[in-house]
Every structure is written in structure tokens, then in C-alpha cells.
Computed example of a mutant assay.
Amino acid sequence: MSRLLFILALFLNTVYSCEVCEPCECNVIRFRRRFLCTADCSDRDLTSIPGTIPSEVHVIDLSYNDLHSEDLARLKLFTGYLTDLNLSYNNITYLPAQSLSTATQLNVLNLDGNILEKVDSTSFGHLKQLHKLIGIHAKTFEENSFENLEGLNYMSIVFGSQEVSENIFSHLKLKTLHTNFKTAKRIPEKLLNFGIDTLVDIYLDVPNVESLHENTFSGLTILKSVTIQTEMMQTLPSNLFHSGVNDDRKMPVNLVTVMIDGVKSLPRNLFDKQQSLKHLALNNIEDLILPKSESQVDTLDLSGSTLYRVSADWFTGFKNLRFLNMSRTKLVEVNNDTLMPLLSLTVLDLSYNNITNLPDHSIQSSQNTIVAFNVSHNQIRNISSLNI
């Protein structure tokens, strides 16, 4: 009984100490049958970490302030309770080696909006429980920068240098990796080899990279989602997502989501063997070709790509398509037969184009399924009976 009273008294004291921490706003919340102390110190013009934050705090939001690297020394005062720390959009240029030494239970660290001079193995040496690292941006990353992050499964990273080591992720077991190569002109062929048994979601923002090696995704057989955003690529390797006839590489042929933005032209057989594809976005592409084989695609986003006119057989094989976005595609006409294969179409967006006329039977095949049809910001002078 005395033990129970002691635990209750300790909890009440923690709750009480979490109620007032000006200039921040502290609260106690319940999360997964636990009571957590949270401190919201965001956007308060802070130049140092307030001493009023209780040492038993679980969640601290220090985003959008004026904290510098030397101000992080105070983080050592927080005990092993801290699980979520947001330092985004401050003026942090390096991580002092011991600043997070007591944060042994830290699961989430957000550094978005800060540019670090260098990251090495001492930067995260004590964060073995870290699961999510958001917005890590540095001018230089040493090869062993992340070797101590054994529990990390999510990372978003910005590379500030032109050269990136292909071993930078070699110690990680990430499920999700979002990368931004700001100035690099090439991606190492084996950069993603670390994720053969773990990587499920990959995002490549490569504005200055002119080409990808056909082995970029080689071996990533459990990969489900790929995003490629670029400005300089003319095309992609035809075997980027599958093996060729005489090629025995294990490739990601079970993709569910693919988003490609900014590639000038796509190979005709890029999506061969992709039988699980549900969500396909092909944006800002000048020469656009759709797969002709039977498709399970549910959502197709072609916004921003150049279409002008769409032939009658363009959507052959897309019988399961429900959401189609062809906004901002410079489309000038829609033929009666263009949308005929789309028997399950629910939402159709043709906005911001140059369409002048909608034929009588343009969406007749979807008249029993369609619930939203957007043709705003066109040059339509006549809308015939659409039989819907």
C-alpha cells in the first residue's frame, strides 16, 4: 500500500511540475495508457532553452526560435524521459558531442531547417533508441556518421556536398529514406544496397542529377514506394524497376506507389512486370507513355505533363482506375473513345487546360460511377449532353 501511495505521489508531483513552464506551454497528455509531459516552446523568440522545463519532460518542441549550437548544452539536464525533440528551424550548425548524452530514450529528433557544418559518429553516439531522424542537413557527412543509430527506421536527409559516399547508410536498417541531393550530379550505384532486407519507401530528390544507374534499385525486392523528383534527367533506364530478358538481378517488381516528376521522357517498358501498382503519378513529363498491359492502378495523376491530345487506346488496361487527374496538361480535346475503357472512374479532373468542347459521350462509360468531374479553367464554349 505504501509503495502504491509513493508511486501516486510521484506521478502527481510530475503532473504538477509539468503544468507551468513559461514562456513555454506545458501539458500532461495520455498516450497509449501512459501520461506524458509535453512542452511547447515553438516560435517564442527563444535564444536559450528555458530552465522552467521540467527534467521529466517527454516531448519538447523548440522549433522556430533562435537557438544556436552552444545553447544545446542544457539538453543534458533532461533525464531518460525525453522521447521526442523538435529543434527545427533554429540556427544550429553542429551538434555538441554530449548535448544528447542523457536522452537515452529519444525516439524522434527533428532538425529540419538547420544546416550543420559536419556530421560524424560523435553527433549521434548516444541515441541507440532513435527511430526517426527528420531533416538532417549537413555540408559534410563522414562515412561513419550513422553507425551508432541501430534502431533507426526513418530518415530524411539533405546532402549539401557534391560527392556522396556510397557507404553512408551501410550500418542502417531503414524502412523509409527521403533524400535530397541539393548539388550532387550523380548518385553512387550502390548507395541503396544497405536496404535489401528493410527498405520499403524511397524518395529521391535529385535536381541536378542527369541520370540514374540501372542498378540503383537492384536487390530491393521488398520496396513498395518510389518517388523520383528531378529537373535535369532526360529519361530513366528501361530496366530501372525490373530485370531484362537475360538479367537475373532481383528487382522491385512489387511496387505499389510510383511518383516520377520532371523526367523529360519515359521508356515504354518502364513499368513492365509491375502487377501490384496501385498509385501512379507522372508529373511534368514532356514525352509521356502509359503502360499498355493490364493494370491494377487505382489512382493516376498526370498533372503538369504534356498531353495536348490523348489517343483512343491510351487508357487500355486501366479498367480498375477510379481517380484520374489530367489537370494542367495542355489538353485541347477529349474524344468520345478516350475514356471508354475507364469503367470504374469515380473522380476526373480536367481543370486548367485548353479544352474547348466536350463531346456527347466522353464519360458515358463511367456514368454510373463518377461522382466528381472538374473542368474548370478551360475554354469550353459548349457542353453537350454528357449522359450522366
Rank of each mutant, 00 (worst) to 15 (best):
H377M: 09
E286S: 14
I29F: 04
S55N: 13
N335V: 01
L152D: 08
I29H: 06
E166A: 06
L12H: 01
L72P: 08
L130N: 03
P359R: 11
E117L: 14
L82M: 10
H171P: 00
L36R: 14
L255E: 08
F217E: 03
I289H: 12
L282T: 00
A39K: 06
T14C: 10
L290R: 06
A9G: 15
P252W: 01
D43N: 15
P291I: 05
L133F: 04
C18T: 08
V375Q: 02
D301R: 04
V200A: 11
T230H: 09
H131A: 09
P252C: 06
T235W: 13
E231H: 14
F241Y: 14
S170H: 06
P252H: 02
F373Y: 12
L106V: 07
R328H: 13
S121Q: 13
V206W: 04
Q229H: 11
T257H: 12
T14D: 06
F6S: 10
D272E: 12
F124L: 05
E147K: 14
Y81V: 01
G113K: 03
I355L: 14
K139Q: 09
N91A: 08
L8Y: 01
M155C: 05
L109E: 05
N387W: 07
E150F: 09
F318P: 04
L100S: 05
I260R: 04
G125N: 11
L36W: 12
Q129P: 00
K173Y: 07
E19Q: 15
P23G: 06
L82V: 05
N246C: 06
N325C: 01
G151R: 09
S303D: 00
I157P: 02
I355F: 08
D43L: 07
I7R: 08
V297S: 03
L177R: 07
L12Y: 01
T79E: 11
D43R: 13
N246D: 15
K175H: 13
E70T: 11
T257V: 13
N269R: 14
K118I: 02
P341M: 10
L100H: 06
R3S: 07
H126L: 00
L174A: 05
L75T: 11
Y308K: 14
D61S: 11
N110D: 15
L282F: 05
I92C: 07
A9N: 04
P23Q: 05
L255V: 08
L62K: 02
L95I: 15
L348W: 08
G304C: 07
N167Q: 04
I136E: 01
K128H: 12
N215K: 14
G317K: 12
V15Y: 11
I157Y: 01
K250E: 15
H58I: 04
F78M: 10
V57P: 11
S265C: 10
C21L: 14
R186H: 08
M340A: 12
S48V: 05
C24A: 07
K182V: 10
L204G: 07
D313V: 02
M340G: 00
L290H: 08
I49S: 10
E147D: 11
S362M: 13
A138L: 09
G80S: 15
E286N: 12
V258C: 07
V334C: 14
K224Y: 02
M232S: 14
S311T: 12
L255I: 06
L111W: 02
T230V: 10
V164L: 03
N354G: 01
T216F: 02
C41M: 06
G80I: 06
E163N: 10
F159N: 06
D287N: 11
V310T: 12
M155D: 01
N283R: 15
L270W: 02
T52V: 03
N180G: 00
S265N: 11
